[in-house]
């Protein structure tokens, strides 16, 4: 039991090298720059559709850095990554059907 415990610890410490203080601050500056950029372009005259796509892409970029580095998922085992991320296919599907349905309701004349 205790041998197992120590073993699992050795494994845990094995991939902590993935993130150091320098990298943490680098991720912070990336997140800050992306946020400032998002607020800045929201005031420009770029068309609404282009803005929407840009915001969605940049949000996913920010999510990647938070989940990957701050939450350490980038350095976890591959089966762990897949088990946690794959269920979100359902969310993508839900976005598709809910937005489609909402738009259709808006076009319906009662």
């Amino acid at each position: 039991m205790s041998a197992n415990h120590e073993q699992s610890h050795a494994v845990d410490h094995g991939h902590e090298g993935g993130l150091n203080t320098k990298m943490i601050w680098k991720v912070f500056w990336i997140l800050l720059a992306v946020t400032i950029f998002e607020v800045a372009i929201s005031f420009t005259g770029i068309s609404k559709d282009v803005l929407l796509v840009t915001f969605v892409v940049l949000t996913i970029v920010k999510a990647y850095f938070i989940v990957g580095y701050f939450m350490h998922l980038k350095f976890e085992a591959v089966p762990m990554k897949w088990s946690l991320l794959l269920p979100f296919i359902l969310i993508v599907y839900l976005i598709f059907i809910a937005i489609y349905e909402g738009t259709a309701l808006g076009l319906t004349i009662y």
Binding site: P87, F88, L90, I91, L94, I95, A98, I99, E101, G102, T103, L105, G106
Partner: peptide, 19 residues
């Protein structure tokens, strides 16, 4: 995350409904 996704997707659906 699924709970929050559902809330935000519901927001999106209604926003498209009353665009």
């Amino acid at each position: 995350a699924f709970t929050f996704s559902s809330l935000l997707i519901a927001y999106g659906a209604m926003r498209h409904r009353f665009t």
